[in-house]
Amino acid sequence: MTPAEVDAYVATLEGCRRKPRGWYVHHTRLVARLTDPTTLLVRVPIDQRDALIDRWPDAFGIPPRLEAHHKIEAYLDRAAPEAVREAIRLAWEFQRYSGLRQSDT
């Protein structure tokens, strides 16, 4: 998957917009950002990261610096497009609904 394909997919998600440093929902809630041309940092719930890695072990990784965070790396040069899309969709749902809960309180 290419960064352009990531951009095209993210554009289909309601309320998700590209900013200079990545893709966001509600203007401030990070969904994903490129850390280099082939690595996409995706903000997914911690409890769903292992399932992504189990399903697509070559597509994703969690470097030690990210273990305590709601983040996973997607390796665009070797990940199946459906794997990357699933991670982005999870991130979008997580951030979209997290933002709604915060604004409701």
Rank of each mutant, 00 (worst) to 15 (best):
E5T: 09
P3K: 13
Q102G: 00
Q48Y: 08
V42L: 03
G22H: 13
A32L: 10
I88Y: 03
R17T: 14
Y97F: 11
H69C: 02
P63E: 04
D104P: 00
I72S: 00
V42T: 07
E82K: 03
Y9G: 07
P57G: 10
T2V: 08
V10N: 09
D7H: 14
A11E: 08
R96C: 05
G61L: 03
D104C: 04
I46M: 03
T28N: 08
D47R: 06
R43F: 10
A74S: 15
A68Q: 11
I88K: 03
T28H: 11
L13G: 05
L76R: 01
T38V: 15
A74D: 11
Y9M: 06
A59V: 06
Y9I: 11
L76V: 02
L30G: 01
R55Q: 15
T39G: 00
T12D: 07
I46R: 05
T105G: 14
R43K: 15
A87F: 02
D36K: 13
P3F: 13
R78A: 02
Y24V: 14
L13N: 05
R85T: 05
D58T: 12
E5A: 15
G15Q: 09
A91K: 01
R29S: 14
G15P: 10
A87R: 03
G22A: 13
V6M: 12
R96V: 01
A59L: 04
P64R: 12
C16P: 03
R18T: 08
A4I: 00
V44F: 08
E73H: 07
A83C: 02
R65A: 13
K19L: 10
Y24H: 15
D7R: 15
F60L: 07
R55V: 01
G61W: 03
A91R: 02
H26M: 07
L52P: 10
H27K: 01
V25L: 12
E73N: 05
Q95W: 04
Q95E: 15
R29A: 14
E73S: 01
W56F: 15
E5G: 04
T28D: 09
A79L: 06
V42P: 02
S98T: 15
D54N: 07
D36F: 10
R85N: 02
P45C: 01
V84Y: 00
L40Q: 04
L40Y: 04
R49D: 11
P63V: 12
D104R: 12
L41K: 05
V44K: 09
A83M: 04
P3V: 14
I53R: 13
Q95A: 15
V25R: 09
K19E: 12
R101S: 10
